[in-house]
């Protein structure tokens, strides 16, 4: 009988009601080391970007546009030349990540670039996700409704197919070439050309949710269609949306970098990781730090978002929860 007390305790804990789905997902995510690493890296990066935004906007010691021709192409950790006037000296007292061909502090420029890159990533994906959910939900829920000769589902999904047929990057290049270059245009264009994947699987989710009893029950309670759609069905379709949005941020950052590298993106003197990289390519043998730091930052951010996305995919998928 000595064991009875402990066994009882254990049975009690297994009888306790299971965690809510969100808490269960969080627990699985925490156990996934790669995903946790991605999450931590992103948290740190976001803090750096917020701090960077404040420092580069308000502190002259972190001004990314200050030109110091005497100190051009200095390597990382190099000290500041005596010829630089006091008010133009970087606040750290040395060039942490070196300087570029105009003597601008690469560390300050990287800080400014992190803000631009993350903002573009999040805003572009925000636009894409909202559009994708909107089109996908309409197509999935109102699928059979007919508008003249074509059903709603057919109309939206064929439009999606048409959008998918364009080679996206060249579509973006064309649009950017026609529009005045600005960070807002870039966000909008990346967002408007990357919603199709989200639309497709939101539609698929809604097609299956539509047949669920709780949706029928919601309608039998007299709730209006928009409430059934966005309050009852959408939260049940969010898991894959979250995963693809996370991975989407990574690809939006890559696209922005590529555009800036080609000179179509954010215009100088504003710095982004892409155009720091682009400036650095002419000095690839003389000043390798100019392309190494932005390139490395891009790789790290994209990797972190992808790891987090993969982790979320596992954590939110009930079929993979058996472990």
């Amino acid at each position: 009988m000595a064991y009875s007390a402990t066994t009882l305790d254990q049975t009690n804990s297994t009888i306790a009601p299971p965690d809510s789905p969100a808490r269960q997902a969080w627990r699985i995510l925490k156990q996934d080391r790669l995903a946790s690493a991605g999450l931590i890296i992103l948290a740190v990066l976001i803090l750096i970007a917020i701090a960077g935004k404040w420092l580069t906007d308000t502190q002259t010691g972190f001004d990314p546009a200050t030109v110091r021709l005497v100190d051009k192409l200095r390597p990382p950790m190099a000290s500041i030349s005596d010829l630089v006037p006091t008010e133009e000296r970087p606040a750290l007292g040395f060039y942490l990540l070196g300087t570029d061909d105009l003597g601008r502090d690469v560390f300050s420029r990287m800080l400014q670039g992190s803000v631009v890159s993350l903002t573009i990533g999040f805003v572009a994906v925000g636009i894409a996700t909202v559009l994708g959910i909107f089109f996908g939900a309409l197509a999935g829920y109102y699928g059979d409704k007919r508008l003249g000769f074509i059903s709603v589902d057919n109309l939206i999904m064929r439009f999606t197919d048409v959008m998918l047929c364009f080679p996206t990057f060249f579509l973006i290049l064309t649009a950017v070439a026609l529009l005045p270059p600005s960070i807002y245009n870039i966000m909008a264009i990346i967002g408007l050309t990357s919603w199709m994947g989200t639309a497709r699987f939101v539609r698929a989710e809604f097609l299956s949710l539509r047949e669920q009893d709780f949706v029928e029950a919601a309608r039998a309670l007299g709730l209006p269609a928009w409430r059934v759609l966005f309050i009852h069905m959408l939260p049940n379709a969010m898991a894959p949306v979250l995963v693809s949005a996370t991975i989407g941020v990574a690809s939006a950052i890559l696209t922005e970098s590529a555009l800036s590298f080609l000179g179509f993106g954010v215009q100088p003197p504003d710095a982004t990781w892409g155009n720091i990289l682009s400036d650095g390519k002419s000095y690839i043998f003389d000043a390798p730090w100019l392309f190494f730091f932005p390139g490395f930052a891009i790789v790290i951010v994209v990797l972190a978002f992808n790891l987090l996305g993969e982790g979320l995919r596992e954590a939110l998928n009930p079929k993979l929860r058996s472990r």
Binding site: P21, D213, F214, E216, A217, A220, H232, P235, N236
Partner: peptide, 14 residues
């Protein structure tokens, strides 16, 4: 008012 056949799936899980 309407009561459905399968209470397991007639309530929104979220």
């Amino acid at each position: 008012g309407m009561i459905f056949q399968e209470p397991m799936v007639a309530l929104n899980p979220l």
